[in-house]
Design a protein around this nucleic acid. Structure first.
Lengths: 304, 304
DNA sequence: TTTAAACTTGAAATCAATTCATGTTTAGTC
DNA sequence: GACTAAACATGAATTGATTTCAAGTTTAAA
C-alpha cells in the first residue's frame, strides 16, 4: 500500500507547502498527487494535513509519515552511495566552473554536503573568467559547469537543476514600485546595473530587452552588495535572482518586481561530458545540488 | 527504480534461501521474483547473489541491500504502529487460546516481541482444555485462538499463519528408519503415542490413518519430552511438528520421516471475531506471529 | 544419461497509477 | 455579496509496468 513514490510526494509536499508545487517538483500532475494523498488517507483512515491553509498544516499522523519519508529516503540514498563505492574506485576529482556570477551562493552548501559523502573526491572551483565555460569540459580543465542555457554540443550532457524567476530590483521610493510588474519599456529611461559580463549572458537582456530593442544606460558592479546599494539609493535598476538577495528583499532594503506579466523565468543546468557523468559521484553531485537547492531556496521550480 | 516490493522480496530471499521458496512466501510466482531480481541487478550493474548455491550466497552489494530492506521494513512497521496508536486508544486486552498442544513453543517469542511494542495491551493465555476453543471467542472468553482448521462460522475470521510438514518420529534403531517415507499401513502394527486429545484434532489420524481405516494401539503423554523418550526407546511412533522438536532431530535423538510421499501438511490459523480484528494491535499481533515464525522456524511455508 | 528441481526468458495479460477533462471549493477583490 | 482566479477533488480513460504463463535452460543428483 505504502510505496516509495508516496515518500517522494510527502517530502515534496513538506518542502513546497502545496499540492500543485509538489506535483511540479516530482514531475507529476497535481491530480496524481491528489489521488496519492487520498489513497494514503483512506488507508490510514485519517487526514494527513489540513487543506485550505498555506502552507499546509500537517496532522500528527502526517507529520509522522513525513518523518518516515525523510528517513527512508536518506537511507536509500546512503545505500546507493555505498553500493556505488563498492562497485567502482572511490577517488576522483570534481572541478566546477560557473557561468553564473552569483551561483556560488547556493552552490556552497551542496559542496559541503558532497564533501561529507565523498571525502576521497577532490573538489575544486575553476577560477577566472571564461568566455565560454562549457569549453573547459572539452579541454579537460573542468568536470562540471553550471550554465543557464543548453547549447547542443557533441559529447556534452546538460542536467537540469532548477528554474527560478528573476525579479527586477527597485529602490523603495522609486516610482516603479507602484507597478505590479515591469515591462521592457520601463527600463528605457533607467540605468541598468549589472555584473560586468557580456549581454548574451544576462537573461534580462537576452530574453526581454534585446527582443524589445530597448537598450538602457548601463553601469556595472562586481559585488552583489554594491549593486544593491546603487539600487537602494535609486541610481538605477537591476535584475537579480531572488534567492541571491532573499534577506535584502525580506527586510525591504530593496523591492522585487516581476519582469513582464508572467515573470522572467531563468533556468540552470549542470553541463558535463557524457563519459564524465558515468562516475557515480558525479551523478550524485548533480542530485545533491538539486536536493539541497530545493531545500534551501524559495520560489524555485523543477526543471526537465 | 528501487521499490518497497523489492524489499519484501529481498527479505524473503534472505530468510528462505531460494527464489522458489521466497516467491511462495510473498505470494508471487518464482518467475516474478526472477524478473525483479534481474531488474535490480541490471539497475545496479552487478549480481546480488550467487545462484547455484544453496542457500544462496550474497554479494557485498546484495548484502547491503538486504540490510537496507530489513531496516526500511522495520521503520515502516514501527511507523504504522505509532500511527495506529495515535488514532485509537492504545490499551486493550489480548486473551489467547490454543487448540494445538505444542504451539506455545513458537508462540512465546512472538508474544515477547508484541509485548515490547504494545506494553499497554494486557496479554493472557486462556488455560484449561476446551472441546471447541473457537467457541471461546463468541463467549468473549478469548480474543484470539490458534487453530489448525478453518471452519466457517458467522462473525469469525481465520487469518492464515503458516503451513508445516509433520514428520513421523521414529527411534534410531527402529526398522522403519530404512523407509524413505511412511504410509498409513506402517502404523498398523505399531503403538501410536500422542497428546491426550481427541482424534479429530490429531492431523495424523484425521488426514491419514482415519481415511485408511488404520487404528493402531495408543498411548498418551502430556509432555513432548515424554513422547520423545518413549519413541527413542522404541515403545512406539509419534507424529510431531518438526519445529517443536528441532533440536532432538538435529542431535538424532530420534529420527523424522515424512508421512506419505508428499509429507503430511498441516496448517495453522489465528481465529478472531471479525470486529475484534479491527483493532490495530490485534492485526499487528497476527502479523508479528507470521514474521517471527518465519524467522525462527525451519521448513514452514506461507499460507493463504 | 536421465530426471527433477531450480531458475531464466519473452510475450501476453493483468492491474494499478497517471493523465485528462471537468467540477468544486476557497480566498481575495471590487 | 457577487465575481474571479487559484488550488484542489473526482471519475473515466489511458498508459505503462509488473505479473503470470508457457516454454526453455541450467544444475545436481541418481
Amino acid at each position: 500500500m505504502l510505496e516509495l513514490r508516496h515518500f517522494e510526494t510527502l517530502v515534496a509536499l513538506a518542502e513546497t507547502g502545496s499540492l500543485a508545487a509538489a506535483a511540479n517538483r516530482v514531475h507529476l500532475t497535481q491530480s496524481a498527487l491528489s489521488h496519492q494523498v487520498k489513497a494514503l488517507e483512506s488507508h490510514y483512515g485519517c487526514a494527513l494535513f489540513e487543506r485550505k491553509t498555506s502552507p499546509l498544516r500537517w496532522t500528527p499522523v502526517g507529520e509522522r509519515l513525513v518523518a518516515l519519508a525523510y528517513d527512508v529516503d536518506r537511507r536509500i540514498a546512503d545505500t546507493n552511495r555505498e553500493v556505488a563505492r563498492l562497485l567502482e574506485g572511490k577517488s576522483g576529482q570534481l572541478r566546477i566552473a560557473m557561468e553564473c556570477h552569483s551561483c556560488f551562493d547556493w552552490l556552497m552548501p551542496s559542496m559541503d554536503v558532497f564533501r561529507d559523502h565523498w571525502d576521497e573526491v577532490e573538489m575544486d572551483l575553476v577560477s577566472g573568467f571564461h568566455p565560454d565555460p562549457v569549453e573547459l569540459l572539452g579541454e579537460n580543465r573542468a568536470d562540471l559547469v553550471i550554465v543557464s542555457r543548453k547549447k547542443k554540443r557533441a559529447g556534452i550532457d546538460f542536467h537540469p537543476l532548477f528554474a527560478y524567476y528573476m525579479p527586477a530590483i527597485v529602490g523603495k521610493r522609486h516610482p516603479l514600485v507602484k507597478k505590479k510588474f515591469l515591462t521592457a519599456s520601463d527600463f528605457a529611461d533607467e540605468t541598468l546595473i549589472t555584473y560586468p559580463i557580456p549581454d548574451e549572458r544576462l537573461d534580462l537582456v537576452r530574453q526581454v530587452l534585446g527582443p524589445a530593442k530597448v537598450d538602457p544606460e548601463r553601469r556595472t558592479a562586481t559585488l552583489t552588495e554594491a549593486i544593491l546599494q546603487l539600487v537602494a539609493s535609486d541610481r538605477g535598476l537591476a535584475a537579480l535572482p531572488a534567492w541571491a538577495i532573499q534577506r535584502y528583499l525580506d527586510r525591504e532594503y530593496v523591492i522585487g518586481k516581476p519582469i513582464t506579466k508572467g515573470g522572467l523565468r531563468c533556468e540552470l543546468y549542470a553541463a558535463t561530458t557524457r563519459s564524465g557523468f558515468q562516475t557515480a559521484y558525479m551523478a550524485d553531485f548533480v542530485e545533491t545540488m538539486r536536493e539541497i537547492s530545493f531545500r534551501q531556496l524559495k520560489g524555485i521550480e523543477a526543471l526537465g
